[in-house]
Amino acid sequence: MPQASTHYLHRRPNLPMAEAWIRVEGEDLVEIPLLGDVSAGMPIEACPTIGAIHAPSCMVRRNTYALRVRGDSMIDCNIFDGDVIIIERQESAENGETAVVLINQQEVTLKKLYIEKNGVRLQPANESMPPIYLKNSDIQVLGMVMGVVRQHEITH
């Protein structure tokens, strides 16, 4: 019978997202809310689910929650379909940061956020996917990625 092996990746500050991850041990785990799915691809409707996940305490701050990733738009940042991302609730993002963004008060997506002259560009970390261009008033930053919880199935 397959078993799940869990890996915890913590984001180190001030490094490009693709190089920012350090593996941490699954010790001193704390429970945080799992609030639903986030699209790493085309934005999906925001539909919260109620659940919980355990994460190392070093990834958890005051306003931390988790979202399950659906899609492949962030693979160049080492975030894959099925991963659970640990998010710190925040209402603003620096230029080029990877953020969870609410679009038009209804769709949620995970992208790199770039502030441009005519609005914002939500840039996938996958060369095969196009960016999304929006007005500043169309988006709301919900949080920043602090870590990844990845489960692999182990077959014997």
Rank of each mutant, 00 (worst) to 15 (best):
H54E: 14
E153W: 10
R121V: 06
R68A: 01
A99Y: 05
R61I: 11
I22A: 14
N118K: 12
D76W: 00
H152A: 09
G82M: 11
A93E: 08
G41H: 02
Q3F: 11
L134F: 01
N78K: 13
Q123H: 09
A4F: 07
G143R: 00
P16C: 06
R121I: 02
A93K: 12
P13M: 10
H7C: 07
H156F: 15
M146E: 13
M42A: 13
Q106W: 05
T64N: 08
A52H: 02
M129L: 15
Y65I: 05
V149F: 01
A4L: 09
V101M: 11
A99T: 08
K111N: 14
Q140E: 12
H7N: 09
G26N: 02
G71L: 01
E25P: 09
E19G: 04
T109Q: 00
R11C: 10
R61G: 14
I75P: 06
I103G: 06
P56N: 01
E116R: 14
N63M: 04
D72K: 07
A125R: 03
S5Q: 14
R61V: 10
A40Y: 08
R23C: 08
V149L: 05
L102V: 10
M144F: 11
P124I: 09
F80A: 03
I86W: 02
A99I: 07
I87M: 06
G71N: 00
K111I: 08
V60P: 04
I22W: 08
P16H: 06
M74V: 01
T64K: 05
Q140H: 10
N104P: 02
G96W: 01
P13E: 14
C58R: 14
D72V: 07
V60N: 00
R61D: 13
G26T: 06
S5A: 09
S39M: 00
Y133T: 12
N63K: 09
T64V: 10
G82W: 06
N78G: 08
G147Y: 00
P131H: 06
I115N: 11
A125L: 04
L34I: 06
T49C: 09
R121T: 04
N126K: 10
A52T: 15
E97N: 05
Y114L: 05
E107D: 10
D28S: 13
H10R: 14
Q151E: 15
